[in-house]
Computed example of a mutant assay.
Amino acid sequence: MATIRSREDQDGITIGWQAQIKRKGFPLQIKTFRTKAEATHWATVTESEMMRGIFIQRSESEQTTVHDLLSRYAREILPTLKGGHKELSRIRVLQNGLGQYSLAALNSSMIAKYRDKRLSTMSEKTGRLVGTQTVKHELGLLQRALKMAVMEWGIALPNGIPTAMVKKPPLPAARTRRLIDNEESRLLDACADAQTPWLLPVVIFAIETAMRAGEILETWKYIKDTEGGKVKTKTSNGLQWSDVDLNKRTAHLPMTKNGEARTVPLSSRAVEVLRHLPRNLDGRVFGTTYEGLHQSYARACKRADIEDLRFHDLRHEATSRFFEKGLREMQVAAITGHKTLQMLKRYTHLKAEDLAKLLG
C-alpha cells in the first residue's frame, strides 16, 4: 500500500508531496511531487503495474540523459569498433539535438522532430542540406546506444526503444557511374602522365580487384577529439607485401570496413601490376596514402576530360565487371566483402548491351 506524506520547509509550509511504495518482490519506490493529486496518481499507476506484472524500474532512466548515454557509449563502446572514431561527430550532433532529455522522457515524437529538423538543416561542411544518409546514420547510432543501455547496462526504458518506431529517411538513389566509351583508356593515359608514379598502378589495381581505397592505401583522417581539437588519426594501414602471395595470386586483408578479414583473388593484370612495383622498406605495397593520391587522381580526370568519376566508382566498375564475366552473387561477395546481397546490388550496375548478348 502506498504512503503519501507532505514535505514541509523550515517554516512548516508544505512544498511538496512524497509517495512511497513498499511491496514484496519489488524495490522501494519513492518519488516527490508538487501536488498531492500527482503523488496519488503516480502511486496508483505504479501499484497497478506491479500487480499486473508490467512494472518497470524508471529511476535510472529518469536520471540518465541522452547526453550521458551517448558519452558512455563513446567512452566504452566506440574504442572497440573498427572506425569507431567516425561516430564521434554524430554523437556530438545527437547530443546537441536530444541530449537534454532523460531516457525515460524520450519518445518517438521527439526523435521524429529531430529527424525532420536535421533534414532541413544546412551542412556547414558542404553548404547543402544535410543528406538523408547522414540522418539515417545518426538515428542508427542512437538506436544502437539505446539497445546497449537496455541489453548490457540494465537501464529499463519505459517507452521501449523509440527509434524503432520512427520512420527512417529514404536512402538517396545509388550512384550508377561507370566507365563509358573510351573513358578507361583516357583515364589510364592521364594517370600515366601524372607526376606521381603510383597513380597508374593504383587505378588499375582498383579496377581489377574492387578493393576499397582504405584497403589499398594507407589512409589518415583529421577528427575532433572530445575537447573539439583536431587530431590526425590513421584509419587504414593499406595493403602490405606480407599479405600478398603472387604465386597463389591472392591478397589477404586482415581487417576490412565491415570488421571481417577476407582474401581477394588477383587477376593476371593485377598480378602484373604488383610484379612491377618496387618494394618499400615499410612493407606497404603502394608507398603513398590516399590523401596524397587524391589530388593527383582528380587532376588526371580533369586532363582526361572525365567528369564526376570518383575513385570509389572504380569499385562499382570492378564489381559490375565480375558479374559480366559470369561470376555468381556469392562469388562476387567473397571478392568484394559485401555482407548482404542488397548491399551488393547497390554497387552493381550491369550494362544493358552486355545483358542483351547473354540473351542471344
Results as ranks from 00 to 15, higher is better:
D11C: 06
M330R: 12
A334H: 11
Q295R: 13
D181G: 11
R310H: 05
H67G: 13
K351C: 15
V130F: 12
C301K: 01
D308L: 06
L199W: 00
T226C: 07
S108Y: 02
M165N: 15
R249E: 10
D305R: 15
N96W: 15
A352K: 06
M211T: 05
S268E: 08
E208A: 04
A74R: 02
I15E: 09
V150G: 11
I15L: 10
R175E: 10
K147Q: 03
S102I: 04
A270K: 01
T340I: 12
T209Y: 01
E272T: 08
K113Y: 08
T64D: 14
V264P: 04
V273I: 06
L141Y: 11
G229I: 01
T46A: 05
G25N: 02
N159K: 13
E47K: 03
A145C: 11
E215G: 11
R115T: 03
Q20E: 13
Y101N: 09
E183D: 03
S320C: 03
R5D: 03
K232W: 12
K147H: 05
G259N: 12
E76K: 10
A43W: 05
T35Y: 15
D11N: 14
T64E: 07
T289L: 03
W220T: 02
P265R: 00
S109N: 02
E317R: 04
L350V: 08
S120L: 13
P27L: 06
D116R: 01
G337K: 01
K339W: 10
R7P: 03
Q18G: 15
E138K: 02
P158W: 14
R52D: 10
I180G: 09
S61I: 12
K22V: 07
S71C: 13
G97S: 11
V202Y: 08
H85P: 12
K302D: 07
K345D: 14
Q18L: 12
E184G: 05
S268R: 10
Q20Y: 10
F26Q: 08
G283W: 13
L106T: 08
W220G: 05
D193C: 09
L266G: 09
S320K: 02
K117V: 08
I91R: 00
T209W: 02
M343W: 15
M51F: 07
E62M: 11
M110Y: 04
R262A: 00
T176Q: 06
W241A: 12
G326F: 00
L179T: 02
F33C: 14
L293W: 05
Y73P: 12
A164M: 15
S59C: 10
L88R: 04
L359G: 13
T132Q: 15
P197E: 08
K24T: 12
